[in-house]
Design a protein around this nucleic acid. Structure first.
Lengths: 208, 208, 208, 208
DNA sequence: CATGAATGAGTATTCATTCAT
DNA sequence: GATGAATGAATACTCATTCAT
């Protein structure tokens, strides 16, 4: 288990232990869901000792949420960047669809677990999440949906979109995107999928 | 708990035992999710003995899926009835939205659990489900979505709807409906919600 | 593990499971102390399944305190009976010494563990002890010492004993008794030990 | 934590490291008892690294017993000095009571832990204690009690004290002293407590 | 010498399932 | 059929100890 320090990669070694664990945890949580995932399986995959996991994470729950956080934050930031860019609202929506598809394809299993498990974890909070952080997590992609709402709002103001309940519509878009990934409906040509979703979302199914 | 064995009510009793268990199971599974739900809590609520559960159901898993089946089947049948009615495709879609909203409102928690759990079923199949049953469950609302696909198909043929991938669009509709319920976005005036969803689905967000 | 129900002792069987566990727990706790004692060893000795322990007791801690309670209560009652009898104070003291010696000889190891562990268990109270009960336990033999205090008080009032701090003296007597047992100083002729302790306690070491 | 290795203080430093650890260990063992005490907490208090502890002590157990030894030896020596002084037996006893009270007040928590833990040492002897050392420890204050026995013996020979089992009586005295400290019965005016104990010990409770 | 990251043996506890009554 | 006492496999987590730097 102790690395026979042959090569000179020792510098990032300690850093990589944590990364190894996170990577393994991602695998196992995605495949098994939160409850069926066992720490034993994670350490077997991470090729590490059981105690090491608990050196880096307080408990299974925190390991899980660290994973979510590390994966979700860059995505949320990228979304915000699109929303505040100079593109037209319609172009922004297309970009958002494209980015979201890519993100969910990468994280679909973990995200599904997250969306499911985040309920029912409020009380048993021994993790060191501040209540605010927990709230943020509990709202799931609410934070993420915010960016879309801004774009929709912008489009309505410019008279490009119909008046609407922007929150509902934003969530509708995301639910469709997640569903497409979830059911493996995404074409190998992702651009095609982007256009299909955008089309449905922009013009609906009805002729004229 | 101990039946004061007067008489005559035995038939009723044994029948209702099963129903009591299913009702209790619905409550507990909905509130706790599959893994956090315990047989102990279910029998406490059902006011029955632990062994009795195993007289009617092979195991916890089968109890869960029996629940799904008993709740889902009437819904699927009602959908089929709408799909094969004489209404216009658009009117059918509206009826389907209305019916589905009502169904998910009634079953949101259990269904959420179901959608989640059905994934982890492939690997550890110690249950006595035939592969076909499993397949049917794994497809989740596939059966249900079929009815919508038929309506969409009909609309496209009649030139009322744009050409589209009917499967994708059908699932998109359902994902939006479920999301609306899931996030408690449904108005007290349900009819308003029905119209909003139908509007978005028929005409999209874009003006003109 | 399931008893091949040959004989007709089935009636007290369920009762005896609990008793088997308590007996085994007594053995192990006495020998190993609270922390070194393992549930595994207890069940091995009790010839029972691990779950069975948790059917009867909430956790290791409660198992331990149940033991203490079941052993200590009869002793406390017997002491009270002596204290409120018609004997002379001196005769009561002798009876108390005799009874206490017998009790500690029987329970020395468990009691030593108890006296030690009772500190530091106040906070982690997930057991279903009421705070009052816990307080009673925390005070150790305070309850028990009360009976002796009453007898001493009586003797002082009758002018038989010197004025004294009755609490301190009562505890002194018990500490001597426990120490005698603890160090296995008790003669095979217990009556001799009783007289020796009583002599020291009544007249001290100094001539005249 | 990281020594800014200036110089010259290395000798002092390494010496004080050991002392820091012993001091911290005393604190933690006293507060938590042997089992609940963790090496992690000790090093946090000692402001040192985990490995350092194992440079100076073979293991947790030896750290504990080193502590006992370093604290107990000066006390034992002081007792011997009193015993072999020119004072009268009664005056020696009073001095011994005074000294012992002071010692136990200072070390009550650690000593309580020690008295308790010394029992569980026989079975699992993976420590590097020689059997003789172990025996010495197991006898607890036997070494200490020896001094009192000598004084008692002296008093009996001089016809000042009743004939008695000197070992039992010596232990009785110590058990009372320890109990007084243990239960925080010691007056702020310690001299009063000394006199009370001496009185009880010399003359007993009975009038005449 | 000092350090602390890595380790894994050891443990309490849970809970689905069985089976004798 | 109904029951629930008994069961033990499964699992998260702790913490003393090691060893490469």
């Amino acid at each position: 288990m102790h690395q026979t320090a042959i090569e000179g990669q020792c510098l990032d070694d300690s850093k990589s232990k944590r990364q190894q664990i996170l990577k393994a945890a991602y695998d196992v949580f995605s495949r098994k869901g939160y409850h069926r995932a066992t720490v034993d399986e994670i350490i077997a995959l991470a090729d590490t000792g059981k105690g090491t996991v608990y050196n880096y994470f307080n408990n299974k729950e925190q390991l899980f949420y660290t994973l979510i956080q590390e994966r979700g934050e860059p995505f949320a930031l990228a979304l915000e960047k699109i929303a505040s860019s100079n593109l037209s609202p319609a172009a922004k929506i297309e970009d958002i669809i494209r980015l979201s598809l890519a993100f969910y394809i990468e994280n679909v299993d973990l995200w599904r677990v997250f969306i499911h498990e985040v309920r029912g974890l409020s009380e048993s909070n021994q993790s060191n999440f501040t209540p605010e952080m927990l709230e943020r997590y509990k709202n799931g992609f609410q934070h993420i949906a915010g960016s879309v709402e801004n774009v929709l709002s912008e489009g309505v103001e410019q008279g490009l979109f119909h008046p609407m309940n922007i929150t509902h519509v934003a969530y509708s878009l995301f639910s469709t995107i997640m569903m497409m990934v979830y059911h493996k409906f995404v074409d190998t040509d992702m651009e095609l999928t982007v256009r299909n979703i955008a089309n449905l979302f922009f013009h609906g199914i009805m002729r004229q």
